[in-house]
Design a binder for these strands. Sequence first.
DNA 1: TAATGATATGTTATATTGTAACATATAGAA
DNA 2: TTCTATATGTTACAATATAACATATCATTA
Lengths: 152, 152
Amino acid sequence: MTHSHNHTACVQVALTNAAQLCAERGVQLTPIRQQVLELIWANHHAVKAYDLLERIKPLQSAAKPATIYRALDFLMEQGFIHRVESLNAFIGCTDLRTVHEQLLLICKQCQDVEERQANAVMQSLADELKEAGFTAHHKAIEIHGICQNCQQ
Amino acid sequence: MTHSHNHTACVQVALTNAAQLCAERGVQLTPIRQQVLELIWANHHAVKAYDLLERIKPLQSAAKPATIYRALDFLMEQGFIHRVESLNAFIGCTDLRTVHEQLLLICKQCQDVEERQANAVMQSLADELKEAGFTAHHKAIEIHGICQNCQQ
DNA sequence: TAATGATATGTTATATTGTAACATATAGAA
DNA sequence: TTCTATATGTTACAATATAACATATCATTA
Ligand SMILES: [Zn+2]
Ligand SMILES: [Zn+2]
Ligand SMILES: [Zn+2]
Ligand SMILES: [Zn+2]
């Protein structure tokens, strides 16, 4: 994603959808929440909470850790962002309109994180969980390696 | 696993295999490393580093965070334990003799973590990664929910 | 033997990540 | 207006993890 794409469009889609969904749901996309979402969408890297804190300070001089973590909690509840567990970091969700499980491909070289639907994987996982008698509430599927662009 | 099994056997297998593998590999299972491994194997819960620190202090009064993290690094390098990314915690590996990807089923109720081979899942994941052109180095697949025993 | 090098541990300090708790503000509903 | 829910401000701290340098131990080898 770092490589040649119209990222302005990515950001605009994300923000427009978030605003729309908030309106539909009767929740508030406040300035702080919107700014945090925009900062996360600065690129396709996973962003750390304290990096967000530094970056939002020019806009919100009173910002403290709780400011960021509250905004992150909200954005996660609404499904606008995902937490990358193995990085303690956050990325914008690229598929706001679908209820989905996320498979995250995390490139060690360019730091980009790609979210994929991976329906076949999710289906075999569902089969496996059924066999195990396990009721899933949340799935974290995070693959670290080298992305297609970085291999060339 | 909490429910009715011979856990003494689990521990013994884990420790015996670890000792054997260290001998084969020419690395040292020092007292600290062995004690940390035993503490991790106290049960099938994921254990946090600072809990290990408290628990090892009666045995190693000089223990500090670095003591634990170094032992954990060693045990992970040797494949004797896994890090549970979504819990910042560690579990003993139940399958020391096989090179494998781990699928971790994490029960919210009893805290047990079950490691499963899940060959079908891994195969569809491999297919998906191939399609994505992504070369995987490390996989963290962690499912949170309710285990079979806790549902009854 | 003595010097060397590799490994493991001791020790202090600090960096990073995340929450708790309580106060204040704001705005719509009753 | 008063109440209530929601959002934010603020202080303090808890929990997780690493850096950096000192010391110890032991096998190798000059
Ligand atoms: Zn983009
Ligand atoms: Zn890349
Ligand atoms: Zn057991
Ligand atoms: Zn359970």
